[in-house]
Structure formats: C-alpha cells, structure tokens
Design a protein around this nucleic acid. Structure first.
Lengths: 209, 209
DNA sequence: TTTTTTCTACTGGTTTTTAGGTATTTTCTG
DNA sequence: CAGAAAATACCTAAAAACCAGTAGAAAAAA
C-alpha cells in the first residue's frame, strides 16, 4: 500500500510545525502540503489526490465544519480528521455529521493521533479519550434547556445583572416595584435557581448574558 | 553571552513539538525542558536556573496568569513570554500585570516570536501585532482594572456565584456566617460594585469566573 | 523578628430579596 | 372574537443581604 498523502490545515504555524515533526517518522503517511486557511486547501484538493486531511475547526476564512462538507463533496475518498481545541459537544457532533472520521483535541498524545489515523483509514470513526467523554455525558448545563423568556423578563434580567434593585428598575421602566418583583420571581422559577446570583451565573453559562 | 536556558510549558504536545522544532536552530537559546502543567514547572524552577519561559495560559492545574506571579516570586530574573490563544484584553493585561514580558497569539509567525524573545531579554515588553491591536482599543467596560483577590475571596466568590447564602457557605467552610459576610463585603468593595448580582456580572466580564 | 496582610469574628441597624399567594388588564394568537 | 400568554399590581412575613465600624489571631512578607 502506498503511503497516505496527507494535508495539514491549521492557522497556527506552531501547530503545523509540531504536526510535521511528530509525523515525520511515520512510515505509512507522507505530508504533501500544509495550509493555513480553507481556500488554499480547496484549491489544492481540486487538482491533487489527497488521502487524509488533518483539519482545524478555527480558520480565518471558512470554518472546519463547513469545510468537511465541501471536501467530501469534492473528493469522497478523502478522510478527514479534526484537530481542534473546541470542547463543545455541538461542534464535535456537527463535524462528524458533515463527514469527518474523527475528532481529536490538540492536547491529545501522539499515540492517540496514530491510533485515530489508523482507525479512520479502515473506515471507522475515532475520538480521543477526552472527546469520548464529552460525547457520552449529555453535558451538565445542556441538560436543563434554556427557558423561554418574555421581552420584559429579558429586559429585567439584564438590569438585575447590572446590580440594580427592584426599586431602581421600577423607576427606570415606570413600573411598580412590586411588578418588578413578580418578574424577578418568575425569572428565578424559570431558571430553577434560588436567587439572583445563581440566576446570573446560569444565564452566563447559557450565553444569555 | 550564554545561550538562554528556555522552558516550554503547554498542555498541547503538538504545540510543544512545534516550538521545539521552530526554535531548534536558534543560536541564542537552548530548550532545556518542557512541561504540560504548572506544578512540574514550579518544581523544576525551584532547583534550576531558567532564563526564559514560554508559557501557555490554559493549563490543567494552575492558570498562566497566576503562574506568572509565582515564577517571578521564585526567580525574579526569569523572563516570561505568554503564548496563548486567548484574545481577551483582560487576560492579556493581567499577565503583564503579574510580571510577563510579552504576549503572543499562537498564530504568530516565527519572526514575531524571535522578535519578542530578543526584545524581552533586553528588558522590554513585547506583543505580537494582533495582541497590540487588542490592547490599543480600550474595551468598553474593561476600564477598571481587575482587583487582586485573596485565596479566600476567590473561593467565596465562586460559592456566591453558585447562589449560596452566607449561612450555607459558612457551614461549608466551617466559618462564622459573619466572617463570610465580611469577605463578601470586601469583594463588593474591591470590585466597586453595589451587590452580588453586579459582582458576578463584573467577574464574568473579567473572566474571573 | 518585625511588619503587613489576610482571615477571622463581632455589634447593631437598614434595606432588599425571597416566598407564599391573588387578581386585573393588556397583548398576542388561533 | 375567544382564549392564552404576558404584563401589571398588591399583601404579608420571614430570610438574607448590605452598611459601617472594630479588632484579635494567624499567616505571609520584609
């Protein structure tokens, strides 16, 4: 079997160099080129055979998730391994859905990288240990779904986050402080939290603030 | 002049390899060791001379911001260059405040890295181009600098963010609730905020939580 | 070892939040 | 238009937070 013609795509020169060094002595693959953006990669793949792509998610032009799809459309037989720092479950799932054969965090060991490469050329999907864990647990904060807030509630949430009291908010919005209290209470209930401190933490975790 | 005895501290094996490769041919420095966490670094630095540390911010045990301070306390003459992906102004400023001599993003070129090393050994502070831009635009609410927190204060801040009351925190830490109240009050004062809600928002903006 | 900082704890008092409800009016939507 | 959802407003009472000041013990730094 020929050596795998391999591309590296990452916008960090340091990472590219690291990968080159780490894979230099691998017998079964040959690094033919490296790019720091998606456009150059696509241009190359149009006219050259490529067996394996080591792909970052964060690139200056096109994101890795979308790139997966385009690569697979151009060259179905090319195998894609994602190398990324993103630990969000949603991102991982999306890359796999778009045709990637594996997902490794950049702090993976060389052994894991080797294993994933050999697994993926055999047609399997392979994750590094840490990624495996992320996938298997349905995520703490992703368990409770983000509650649906009304316009007023969003408004008051943001004012509460600024440390304003019910009285101040009431003055600002021309409401009774008692009304603000009610909204505040509903917010606590919707988020299933005990007080405003926890409310704000939770809202931050869910990217609402 | 002797070659600079240099350490690499990063939890990404790929990045470490990349840096080694990139710096292998530098005449003026010699990489003496590399670590993937803060504890090992501190152990090494206790008993060995180190001229330069290339340091990541995200590490599994101690964060790079705190590490700066500890390194400088142990060995004042050691120069620290931060190599990170974080683009938040507050993080950059904090590392510098804690004694770092420069800050580079991981997508910096080798030229920038070389330049920053030579600048910093001359006692100057040096940022990569992109970092420079981040610093120069004085972010909206980040004008007030991040206050220096004690260990207890950090601990209580995080418990407050979980929505716990003084009483609960006191029970958890085996303290008088009155003591917890005092810490809480000091936190409000240090952050110049009115209540815990605003405290948590501010702490989040400054990436302390 | 002396000084400084941090951690601890208290008194006493005011303000605000939180927890149960209930109820009317406005606004949106089928 | 009718019904649902949202916004408005109130009551009572307990719990918690906030304000201002003090001060000894422990730990860290000079």
């Amino acid at each position: 079997m020929d050596r795998l013609l391999t591309l590296i795509v990452d916008d960090h020169p340091i990472v590219v160099e690291g990968l080159k060094t780490l894979l230099k002595n691998e017998q079964n693959l040959k690094i033919v080129a490296s790019f720091h953006n998606g456009t150059d990669l696509l241009a190359y793949i149009e006219t050259n055979r490529v067996d394996l792509v080591l792909l970052d998610v964060t690139l200056p032009d096109i994101n890795g998730m979308d790139l997966c799809q385009i690569i697979k459309k151009t060259s179905l037989s090319t195998i894609i391994l994602i190398l990324s720092n993103h630990t969000e479950r949603s991102i991982i799932m999306q890359t796999i859905q778009n045709g990637a054969s594996g997902y490794l965090l950049k702090n993976s060991s060389l052994d894991e990288l080797r294993k994933c490469i050999s697994e993926s050329v055999q047609g399997n999907i392979c994750y590094s240990r840490e990624v495996m864990e992320i996938i298997s647990r349905p995520g703490r904060n992703e368990l409770r779904s983000t509650p649906q807030l009304t316009r007023r509630e969003k408004q008051i949430l943001s004012l509460l986050a600024q440390g304003k009291t019910s009285q101040v908010i009431a003055d600002e919005l021309f409401l009774s402080p008692l009304t603000v209290d009610t909204h505040r209470r509903n917010l606590l209930q919707k988020f299933e939290v005990k007080n405003v401190a926890e409310l704000i933490t939770t809202a931050h975790q869910q990217k609402i603030l």
